[in-house]
Design a protein around this nucleic acid. Structure first.
Lengths: 204, 204
DNA sequence: TTGTAAAACGGGGTGGCCCTCCATATCGTA
DNA sequence: TACGATATGGAGGGCCACCCCGTTTTACAA
């Protein structure tokens, strides 16, 4: 929800200078995070944006809020992908494809995985439209279809599935060949370690 | 490799006061890390140990070194478990059991997972006996047996398997019910998302 | 026992970080 | 244009990692 001077929402529109600074901070943050990951220094982001650190903290009261703003469009793209895949004739394939897309985004956007995992947990029950809930809602439908088509076990939750994907991405995101590793590990996790032919679903 | 005044190694034995401080720091670190996780303040650890921060930095040039020293005995226990399980008549079960044990340790010792994952990567090619290599060597044997018994796919590496386990632990270690989640996710990853009966090993 | 060089120590400094206060500057509008 | 509401950012506080270097402690030999 980037503050929007065009909306007719009850909140008064932002002043022009405020909006300009907001956008500059967002751009600087995207740049810094791409280079250094989600732990990039907030002070440096403010410096890059050419604003004081107080201004950054006023617009984004927590790091999490900043991350969510930075990644919002990526998350929306992922949700759109999910909507497209909902029409796929093979629900199992659709689910796997989507999880792969999530992983690809998470690996190539350092910090995204961490953002997706933390759903406004830090006693921050303000906005309902967090990255976490957006992505969860988007995936729930795909999983439900896959279950109905018997392509996924009924006892698996979308929360667990996404946690798994994000855990993998979080773990490999600082390695040089992160994308390849994430793909390999995701495939491994989705298909299990048993060799083809052995009964799947056995509790090891 | 806790410096040992008893060894006959080429390096001169530690002075008594140095050894005493080393041990105190280690104890304080274990305590602080158990309470606050791997990001515990080094200054506070020094404070608890009753030494100056410079002394801490002299004994442990990096946080990673300190973590490895703290977790060394836990890792050794895990290696011992692996050795025991090598005699298990069901290699598949042995591997799964061991991975579960790794997960349990990692979840209950905050920071262990991160330690296990980073093998002296930070241009720190000093000691070969890092946590990472110890655990990898211990697991390699179990995996090899499981493969031979056709209980694991031949194209899976112990590195990947451990990365998966640690990724899961890393992701859930700050949540209240981390242990339960780790167990659930690990099972999911080992058995795959396909329902029982569907062919395992299919590339989704 | 005592003298000495080597080893170890730790207070204090540097610079970075996050976050907040409040005097000042800027904007939108009447 | 003038004025009140809004936004700004420098300065400062608290915390941290890490290092310098004068001082203390140790081990050992005379």
């Amino acid at each position: 929800m980037p503050p929007d001077s065009r909306t007719t929402s009850p909140t008064r529109p932002m002043r022009a200078d405020a909006r300009r600074n907001y956008d500059r901070i967002l751009a600087a943050a995207a740049e810094a995070i791409a280079e250094q990951g989600a732990e990039a220094s907030l002070e440096e982001i403010a410096r890059r944006a050419g604003v004081g650190s107080a201004t950054l903290h006023r617009h984004f009261p927590s790091r999490q809020r900043l991350l969510e703003a930075v990644f919002r469009d990526k998350v929306e793209a992922l949700c759109a992908t999910a909507a497209d895949l909902a029409a796929d004739p093979d629900p199992g394939h659709a689910l796997a494809t989507w999880l792969g897309a999530v992983a690809r985004h998470a690996v190539s956007n350092r910090g995204l995985a961490a953002s997706l995992m933390r759903g406004a947990q830090d006693g921050d029950p303000t906005l309902g439209a967090t990255c976490h809930s957006m992505i969860t809602n988007a995936g729930a439908d795909l999983l439900a279809r896959a279950c109905r088509a018997n392509a996924a076990r009924p006892d698996v939750s979308i929360t667990d599935l996404l946690k798994l994907v994000n855990a993998i991405c979080l773990a490999v995101e600082q390695e040089p060949d992160g994308a390849a590793q994430a793909d390999r590990l995701l495939t491994l996790a989705l298909t299990g370690v048993h060799p083809a032919g052995e009964t799947a679903g056995r509790r090891m």
